[in-house]
């Protein structure tokens, strides 16, 4: 499961996230109640809602993530969660890395 170890009560608006059971990819709870791979579609909840984590059999280990809102779009406060949005900060594919290096 991928939720971070330490959880304290949320003080900022939250979105809900987890990983899809089928492929493990990052999932965000969208406005229509489905789970989306894109955080831009995530529904933003007030901080008080953080404790009521929605469950879905297709999503593993859902938890709340505190976000800042810029132009209406949620950005996670924690670095870990921003990495889950952007993917690894390092160029993963060696071929690409070699191409960049040369």
């Amino acid at each position: 499961m991928s939720s971070p170890a330490k959880l304290r009560p949320a003080t900022a608006p939250v979105v809900f996230t987890g990983n899809f059971l089928s492929d493990g990819r990052v999932a965000w709870l969208a406005g229509d109640g489905t789970w989306s791979p894109r955080i831009a579609e995530a529904r933003v909840f007030p901080a008080e809602a953080a404790a009521r984590v929605p469950q879905d059999p297709r999503v593993v280990g859902p938890y709340a993530v505190e976000v800042d809102l810029a132009a209406g779009l949620p950005t996670p406060r924690r670095f870990r969660e921003r990495l889950r949005v952007t993917g690894p900060s390092v160029v993963a594919e060696p071929a690409l890395r070699l191409a960049l290096a040369s």
Partner: peptide, 26 residues
Amino acid sequence: IDGALTEDEFKPLRLMNGLYLQLHAY
């Protein structure tokens, strides 16, 4: 996938077969 195993039960079983759930994928 059918729901007969909870994630809590499945986790040690998948781990014993080397399968982790990480940040972006298994």
